[in-house]
Structures are given as C-alpha cells and as structure tokens.
C-alpha cells in the first residue's frame, strides 16, 4: 500500500493527539478526583416509600470520624424533592454525597454551571460526592425533557457557613 510521507506523519500526529486526550481524562480521574457516575444500585421506582427516598432530605452521617452529609433527592414531574419547595441546605467545605432517583420518568439533575450533573433514571440510584468550596447559592436545572412542564422544573442548593448550618432541617 502506498501512503504518502506527509500522510504518514499526519497519522502519527493523530495518534499522539488521541493519546493526549485520553491522558487528560485519566489525569482528571486520578489527580483531580473528577469521577463519573457508575453502577451503584437499582431500586423499585414504584415503591420508594420504604427506602431512604421515602423521606428525602439531608442526613448527617459519620464516616471515618468525620461528619459528612447525605442528600436523598427524588425528582418528580416537575420538581426536585427536596430542592424546589425548599432549597437543599448544606455546609461549606464538607463532604456531601447525593443520591438521586426518579419515581416517574427520566429527569436531569444539573447544578448549573458546575460539573455536578447526573441523569435521574427510574429504577437506578445515581450517587456522587462533592465538596462545595464556597458559600453561595446554586440553581438546579432539570436538563432532561420530562413532560409538558419540563421548563419550570428547577431547584436550589444553598451552601452556608458551617456555623450557620441549621441541623434542625435534617431528616432522620
């Protein structure tokens, strides 16, 4: 087969580029702890009552001697519960693990402008952990079409200083 020498050079260059892209992603994974959602657990979307999602909200847990928080969120047509009626309140600089699932149709859970972004799929539990670095409010957007009022589905996360974090809002 005849491959022009410029073309050979170009193909080599292409492989370098591809390797660079893959390395970037791996670097993000390993060095910056930028992970994607994986296979956590399945759940019966028609019976969330008997699971932690039956009582959605923020919980305090202790892991390795550290106080952390877990947030169970149900996405429903057309609201985040919690998130829409009242903001999800979490303290700054603390590990927060989200568990998101949907009892009805597909939704998205996207903290606007950040990389906290997951699908909420009936039957699947999405789990991801983060640390909010600054005190501020974030908007949550449903970014998967979920029905005629999809565009009104929004919520809020309120990151507060540790001293102002109100534990009376926690759920058991």
């Amino acid at each position: 087969m005849h491959i022009h020498k410029f073309e050979q050079f170009w193909i080599k260059l292409s492989f370098v580029l591809i390797a660079f892209f893959i390395a970037t992603v791996v670097y993000g994974f390993v060095a910056m702890d930028l992970k994607v959602i994986g296979d956590h657990a399945t759940i019966d979307p028609q019976n969330l009552e008997d699971t932690p999602f039956g009582n959605p909200g923020v919980r305090e847990v202790t892991r390795n001697g550290q106080t952390e928080y877990e947030v169970y969120v149900q996405t429903i047509q057309f609201a985040f519960n919690p998130g829409t009626a009242q903001p999800i309140e979490v303290p700054v600089d603390t590990r927060v693990t989200f568990y998101v699932t949907s009892p009805d149709v597909l939704h998205g859970f996207d903290v606007a402008g950040t990389n906290l972004n997951t699908m909420a799929i009936p039957g699947q539990v999405a789990k991801f952990t983060t640390i909010f670095p600054e005190v501020r409010e974030y908007g949550i957007v449903c970014n998967e079409y979920c029905g005629p009022a999809h565009h009104v589905m929004e919520g809020k996360i309120k990151v507060v200083p540790k001293s102002e974090f109100d534990i009376s809002n926690l759920v058991e």
Binding site: F15, I18, F21, V25, V36, D39, H40, T118, M119, Q124
Partner: peptide, 22 residues
C-alpha cells in the same frame, strides 16, 4: 451521566470514541 453502567464500560466507550478521531 447515567447510573447503572459501570465506569469501566464507559471508559472502553471513551477510548473507542477517541480512536474514531483517527
């Protein structure tokens, strides 16, 4: 961004996708 598919298979798909750049 889907739960229910393990990271390993997502990685395989990513490598294949980037190879399609070729």
């Amino acid at each position: 961004a889907d739960a229910g598919i393990s990271v390993g298979f997502k990685f395989y798909a990513m490598a294949t996708t980037l190879l399609l750049l070729l």
